[in-house]
């Protein structure tokens, strides 16, 4: 095997390959550790944490649909302190870079969580969840107003030196406006896309299937939507892009990189085949060899 440079620098998060997992699809890493050698991932992106434990939504929290699923988990989690004590020791011992997805119901909560994580060894970066469709306060409300995005990113920027990666909502008229807002406010990289707001109705009962009524669509169905948004984002992005949405093969990941992504995240496919991220890494390497490329960075933005 010829030498191929697989490492990337995602706005200060140094990854040995461009593949991580999407927040919420891989728990805190240890749930999958029996099945996947998580040290082979470029980074582990963990489930969203806020400043205190949070119970999430009532059941049903998910429904399978053609090409994927709609979920409204509602960001259940142990809170930032619980995350640091229960989950970080394991991840730190593994030595894999950890990207922590954080959320809150106001800007101060994002800052509080960011401050706490800033001093935690092993935390390589913060993904700002400003686009979750499944929590009533905050969430998508932040991500669909560019001024709020700028304010939030700027406020968190002021309290941490960790790489900041805002995760953008797909349901906006022009993604480029949000990319500019985030990077001008100090984002080091940009993550996209979050799930697409969606709804499923049981026609027999005429009730929404999800207890939250609406949720977020993920899986193969969203992939072409995400590719288009990553491509648009790359036209104005001065910072690296972390792309996700329906990756189940190396080809899906390579498509994102050609569209402009520096790194990618495997999401819903983890549920179906936990070995997907490792297959994607191997497949990207094989593609680079086959195309006579020497570094994975050559793929980024190589659309002709």
């Amino acid at each position: 095997m010829s030498l191929i440079e697989m490492s990337v620098n995602l706005g200060g998060v140094r990854m040995k390959n461009p593949v991580t997992v999407a927040s919420g699809t891989f728990g805190y890493g240890q749930e999958y550790a029996d099945l996947v050698d998580i040290t082979r991932l470029g980074a582990v992106t963990v489930k969203g944490v806020r400043n205190r434990p949070w119970e999430g939504n009532d059941l049903p929290r998910h429904v399978e649909v053609p090409g994927g699923m709609v979920n409204a988990i509602g960001l259940q989690g142990p809170g930032v302190d619980g995350f640091i004590t229960q989950y970080m020791p394991f991840l730190r011992e593994k030595g894999v870079p950890v990207i922590v997805n954080i959320w809150g119901t106001d800007i101060e909560e994002y800052c509080e969580v960011a401050r706490k994580l800033s001093d935690v060894p092993g935390v390589a970066g913060l993904e700002l969840n400003i686009s979750c469709p499944n929590v009533k306060e905050g969430g998508n409300a932040f991500g669909t107003d560019p001024q709020v995005v700028a304010e939030l990113v700027g406020a968190v920027r002021a309290v941490t030196v960790l790489p900041l990666i805002p995760k953008l909502a797909p349901n906006v008229p022009d993604i480029r406006v949000f990319v500019r807002a985030a990077q001008d406010a100090g984002a080091d990289a940009i993550s996209l896309i979050n799930t697409i707001p969606a709804m499923v109705i049981d026609i027999e009962t005429r009730k929404p299937v999800l207890s939250n009524r609406v949720g977020g669509l993920s899986g193969a169905a969203v992939h072409p939507v995400a590719v288009k948004l990553v491509w648009e984002a790359s036209q104005v992005a001065k910072v690296p892009l972390l792309a996700m949405g329906g990756i189940s093969t190396a080809g899906d990941a390579i498509e994102f990189m050609i569209a402009g992504a520096t790194a990618v995240a495997v999401g819903t496919a983890n549920f179906i085949d936990p070995s997907t991220p490792l297959r994607v890494i191997a497949g990207i390497r094989e593609y680079l060899e086959r195309h006579g490329m020497h570094a994975v960075g050559e793929l980024t933005g190589s659309l002709v």
Binding site: F26, E31, L35, P60, F271
Partner: peptide, 15 residues
């Protein structure tokens, strides 16, 4: 018996 997604405790769908 609940509808599950991941089966390993990661997704929090079957709580």
């Amino acid at each position: 018996d609940k509808h599950m997604v991941c089966g390993v405790g990661a997704c929090l769908a079957c709580v």
